[in-house]
Computed example of a mutant assay.
Amino acid sequence: MDSDGFNGVVERLLSAADGTEDETAAVLGDLDGDVVARAVLGEIAARAALFEGATAPVTVQFDVGTPDGRLDYLVTVGDGPARCERGRLREPWVLVRQDLTDLLRSVYGPAGAVQGGTLEVTVRDEDPPGSTGEFGYEDRHQAVRAAHQLTKACSARPVDLDLLAVRFRSDKWGGHWYTPHYERHFGARRDQRVKLLEIGVGGYHAPDVGGASLLMWKHYFRRGLVYGLDVFDKSALDEPRKLTVRGDQSDPEFLNALAKRIGPLDIVIDDGSHRSSDVITSFRTLFPHLRPGGLYVIEDLQTSYWPGWNGGRTHPDDAGTSVGHLKTVVDGLHHMERPGEPSATDRTVTAIHLYPGVAFVEKGINSDRPAPAWIRRDVDPAVWMADPSALSTEEK
């Protein structure tokens, strides 16, 4: 199954995990149990690296119950990437037994829901044949750490965004200080099934380099689908819930087609070329594809002042620069007080939050009312407030 097809299955599983236990089970009844189990255990294996666990490799036996019988899988964790495969050990150090419906809901279900009722975790007490003394004791200690690592990976406990940025080497913490701002605006959404598009994968020409922020977002939004857009082919970085697309952010036709195919979108992050013309084109094209309540983020606004990056114009309010364009968005935010017909963007921008180097633009319905008509716009308020009799009755 190709990446798009597998992610289609994962998207269906994310939706199924939102329902009641019976509703989840009904959806799983129409799917191949092995495909579902591999998807869920693959997610667990990917999350396992986020938690402190075994330092030496430990292979954990998963016994997954389905309506058609039990399926056996081996998940190996330790100091390095975890892996998952079909198989059974005769005497595993750790045995995890759980019904597939319960396992799916534990991994992909909403936080706070009561799940895990069928979970059994067994760590063997006795040493395996051939081990003696301290060696066997250390093996069991590693097995306990592996069991803890995987059970945490199965849960909905949030992982700090700063930690994720450092773990995956994203420059959003350390290179910049963006993650506190992201936490402020994304925190309430992290348990939702968001669709996120980030422009700019990183790594330039190297096909298997970059994607640090995409990994960060995948694990921050444990129920989200994450897409990365880059001018270079980054398909080697694709994995469940994280896909890359090759394309140019300066091409409105391409951006429209992409957004129609993967959208509607909940979050767009522009961390691409940082050229003002590209930033403006991307915003104008993709903002209409955001869901109501969505967020559009533009990073590295400092380039708006750099001539070599299509910025640094002669006037700081030049609408051809990224920051200058955002100033026009601020004007549109107050369209009810300005002459002329408001644009679609004017009507749907509800807030703008600016921090050093990064802006967050919220989408919704901008229906704020203008000030009362009796307030004179053309008279200094100090004049008429000091002497209201200076106004006619009709003007009061």
Rank of each mutant, 00 (worst) to 15 (best):
Lys172Asp: 07
Ser131Cys: 06
Met216Leu: 14
Leu214Gln: 14
Tyr227Glu: 04
Leu255His: 06
Arg193Glu: 11
Tyr220Gly: 11
Gly136Val: 05
Arg223Met: 08
Tyr137Gly: 06
Arg246Gly: 03
Tyr178Gln: 04
His176Met: 09
Arg241Met: 10
Phe232Asp: 05
Gly224Asp: 09
Asp251Ala: 05
Leu215Met: 11
Ala147Pro: 04
Asp238Asn: 07
Asp162Ala: 09
Gly224His: 11
Ala206Thr: 13
Leu215Trp: 09
Phe221Asp: 01
Gln142Trp: 00
Trp173Ala: 02
Ala143Phe: 01
Leu258Ala: 09
Ala147Thr: 02
Asp127Ile: 02
Leu243His: 08
Phe168Pro: 03
Trp217Phe: 15
Thr132Tyr: 15
Gly175Ser: 02
Ala236Ile: 01
Phe221Cys: 10
Glu138Ser: 08
Leu243Val: 13
Ala206Lys: 15
His205Tyr: 15
Leu258Ser: 06
Asp248Leu: 00
Val245Asp: 07
Asp230Trp: 15
Gln142Thr: 00
Val144Ser: 05
Ala143Met: 00
Arg189Cys: 06
Arg223Cys: 01
Pro129Phe: 01
Asp171Trp: 15
Gly210His: 06
Arg167Val: 06
Ala153Asp: 00
Leu163Ser: 12
Pro252Val: 00
Gly224Ala: 11
Ser170Lys: 06
Asp191Tyr: 01
His148Ser: 11
Leu225Pro: 03
Trp217His: 06
Leu163Pro: 03
Phe186Lys: 02
Ala147Met: 03
Val194Leu: 12
Tyr220Thr: 04
Glu198Gln: 11
Ser170Cys: 04
Arg167Gln: 10
Tyr220Glu: 07
Ser131Gln: 12
Gly211Asn: 09
Arg145Lys: 07
Phe232Tyr: 15
His148Asp: 12
Gly174His: 05
Lys218Asp: 03
Pro129Val: 07
Leu258Gly: 04
Asp171Cys: 04
Glu253Asp: 15
Asp251Trp: 10
Asp171Gln: 09
Leu225His: 10
Met216Asn: 08
Leu150Arg: 06
Pro207Thr: 05
Leu196Thr: 08
Gly210Ile: 04
Leu255Asp: 00
Asp238Tyr: 01
Asp208Asn: 14
Gly136Ala: 15
Asp160Ile: 05
Gly224Ser: 09
Lys152Ser: 13
Ser155Thr: 05
Pro128Lys: 13
Glu253Ala: 13
Tyr220Ile: 01
Val231Ala: 01
His141Pro: 02
Leu225Trp: 11
Leu237Val: 01
His176Cys: 07
Tyr227Ser: 09
Glu198His: 12
Glu183Gln: 13
Ser250Leu: 00
His141Trp: 07
Gly228Lys: 05
Phe186His: 04
Val159Asn: 03
Gly200Ile: 11
Met216Phe: 03
His141Gln: 13
His181Trp: 15
Glu239Ser: 04
Val166Tyr: 13
Thr151Val: 10
Ala212Asn: 13
Val144Leu: 14
Leu243Lys: 14
Gly211Pro: 13
Leu150Phe: 02
Asp208Met: 05
Ser155Ile: 05
Gly136Pro: 08
Leu214Ala: 08
His176Leu: 12
Gln142Gly: 02
Arg184Asn: 00
Glu134Pro: 08
Leu225Ser: 12
Ala147Ser: 07
Asn256Ser: 13
Gly175Trp: 14
Phe254Thr: 00
Lys172Val: 09
Pro128Cys: 09
Arg193Val: 05
Glu134Asn: 10
Leu258Thr: 07
Pro129Asn: 06
Ala236Arg: 15
Gly247Leu: 06
Leu197Asn: 12
Gln192Glu: 15
Arg193Gly: 10
His141Val: 12
Gln142Met: 04
Thr179Tyr: 04
